[in-house]
C-alpha cells in the first residue's frame, strides 16, 4: 500500500519521493567481534509492527531522517531528525 511520509523539512509527500534506508539498528563499536559486525551487516529484526527506519528525501531536500512506521499497515506514527529527542541514533554503541 502506498502512503504519505512527512519529511521534517518539506512536509507531507508521496512515499515514492523517498529512498527507504532500512530499519535503524545499533552499530558495533570499533574493535567489536567479527560476529557482531556480521550480525550488524546482515541480520535484521524485520519487525511486523512498529519500527524506526531511515528515509532519504531523494526528490526533495536530499536529507536523511528517521520515521516510526507500522510495517503491517504502513501508517507513519512520526518522522524526525536523528538529533531530535527520542530518536534511536544508529551510531549508539551496541551493549
Amino acid at each position: 500500500m502506498g502512503f504519505l511520509l512527512a519529511c521534517p523539512n518539506c512536509g507531507q509527500r508521496d512515499v515514492y519521493e523517498f529512498r527507504f534506508g532500512g530499519e535503524v539498528h545499533a552499530r558495533p563499536q570499533f574493535g567489536a567481534s567479527k560476529k557482531d559486525w556480521m550480525d550488524y551487516v546482515y541480520r535484521r529484526s524485520n519487525t511486523a509492527g512498529v519500527e524506526n527506519e531511515w528515509w532519504y528525501h531523494r526528490m526533495g531536500c536530499r536529507r536523511w531522517f528517521q520515521a516510526t512506521r507500522d510495517t503491517t499497515n504502513n501508517s507513519v506514527l512520526r518522522t524526525f531528525w536523528t538529533d531530535q529527542e527520542g530518536s534511536d541514533n544508529a551510531v549508539r554503541a551496541r551493549k
Binding site: M1, G2, F18, F20, T71
Partner: peptide, 13 residues
Amino acid sequence: DPYSSYSPLSTFQ
C-alpha cells in the same frame, strides 16, 4: 516495492 512492508494491499504506482 522499494520499501519494506507486511501490508497485503497493492499500489497504483
